[in-house]
Design a protein around this nucleic acid. Structure first.
Lengths: 245, 245
DNA sequence: TCAAAAGTGTTCGATGTACACCCATGG
DNA sequence: CCATGGGTGTACATCGAACACTTTTGA
């Protein structure tokens, strides 16, 4: 805050900025990490894919705006359960060729979300495999890469992975989240022990069991626990690669 | 609305915001964690302490603005070596009673920085012990607490601690950074081994040695290495407390 | 010669890793 | 009865916590 402004800011002391939110929404479908993208309808970057987002309205915070946009873009009526996390703010002067736009970026995670309804205009929205995403509009490549890095890192020391799972899930599904985001394989017995040894990470659903692949032994079901952080962390394999996949 | 906008945004689609930066600048002096604060000269919150900061100018990014403010407030001619890190953005509609202000918060770290020159006006700037900071203006309590949490967490898995040290430092000084920020004691022999076992964390200065407390064996000197992250991390003691202090 | 700070060695339990093995189910 | 995925047991290397001990300096 500028201590030199008399009372009420000097109207010439600041430039007005437009403030937007951009969302990197991830989901795991069919063992594949996917991102929600929209196709731009007009210039600049017409026809290019971009992250969904929009303006922050006069009476809302960036967090509120992000959740509103998330609901609009995914078409979900209840997004209150989805994990939404502020990433960082992108404010390079030239990031939007038209005017000065500062964007607060968010990462959002959800379990196998439904197909998005197309946006109001010609713009369409779609889930795209993360690994196959090409060049995006504006600085959205960078935002998406930062979001993926953050998610990957947070899996190590937080209980975030359960946000990618439905309310009841098997340990195999939870493991697949880690493997899908990290792009590595993990040892199933050790993963299992590690997760169960962390109090509050998951809690068993008493009578639950589900067949996952159609074959094999039915797996026990779990719910997300109350813990938020993982002590000690679940580190991703260091050198070349894990094992089974 | 910006006249450059070609077929740009609908002028009614967005509200203009003022964008500021707020800085939580930490330093370690006399084995104490200190924060740079400014005293506000006028309403609102006249006479209250606040984090330094100011408006983002038309042609600069938030990062550039933060570094400029940092130089102005600390009075240092060269702040290029100081660690500056974006924390998050605070955008609650009512966070400034006068108008809509979105603030990008940064955390900055430096080794035993000089006394700040007072700001141009009645406002004065001072180093204050972090543990003794009272209620600040606006939402700066929250920002400061978030900054401290972030710094503490980053010490665990990054080489950030060297940013609190002068160009050449002893392992005892480095350890004191951890102890000061975390508020715990650490076992010196184990700390030493851990640091030296991490390639690129520190590198020895060939002939260097320094007496730290006036008494005792002179300590070898080290420089910051090239590594940025710590694998494996240097976790802070879990339960009640460490040992020596 | 004592206090204080740096630095080394060693023990022991916890943790992670790799892998062998058994269990339940559908085709 | 075999493939497939869930779940258990175990041996071994590695790491970190705790603490005893030596070294070098100033008073």
């Amino acid at each position: 805050m500028n201590p030199r402004a008399p009372q009420g800011y000097d109207p010439h002391a600041f430039t007005p900025f437009a403030v937007t939110v951009d969302l990197a929404v991830f989901t795991v479908r069919d063992g594949d990490l996917q991102v929600l993208l929209v196709e731009r309808g007009q210039e600049p970057y017409a026809g290019r894919w971009a992250l969904p987002g929009g303006f922050v309205l006069p009476r809302e915070s960036a967090e509120t705006a992000a959740r509103r946009e998330l609901a609009e873009e995914t078409g979900l009526s209840d997004v209150s359960g989805l994990h939404l996390e502020q990433l960082r703010t992108y404010s390079e002067p030239e990031r939007d060729p038209r005017m000065r736009v500062v964007s607060v970026a968010f990462a959002a995670l959800g379990p196998d979300l439904p197909e998005p309804r197309g946006g109001g205009d010609a713009a369409q929205a779609q889930w795209r495999p993360f690994r196959a995403v090409g060049a995006l509009a504006f600085d959205h490549d960078r935002i998406l890469a930062d979001a993926h890095d953050r998610i990957g890192a947070k899996l190590e020391y937080s209980c975030l992975a359960t946000s990618f799972c439905p309310p009841e899930f098997t340990l195999g599904e939870l493991q697949q989240v880690y493997e899908t985001v990290w792009g590595t394989g993990l040892d199933r017995p050790n993963f299992r022990r590690k997760v169960l040894a962390t109090p509050g990470f998951v809690e068993p659903v008493p009578g639950g069991a589900r067949l996952t692949g159609g074959r094999g032994k039915p797996a026990a079901l779990y719910r997300a626990g109350t813990a938020a952080t993982l002590h000690p962390p679940l580190l991703r394999p260091t050198s070349p690669e894990g094992r089974s996949r």
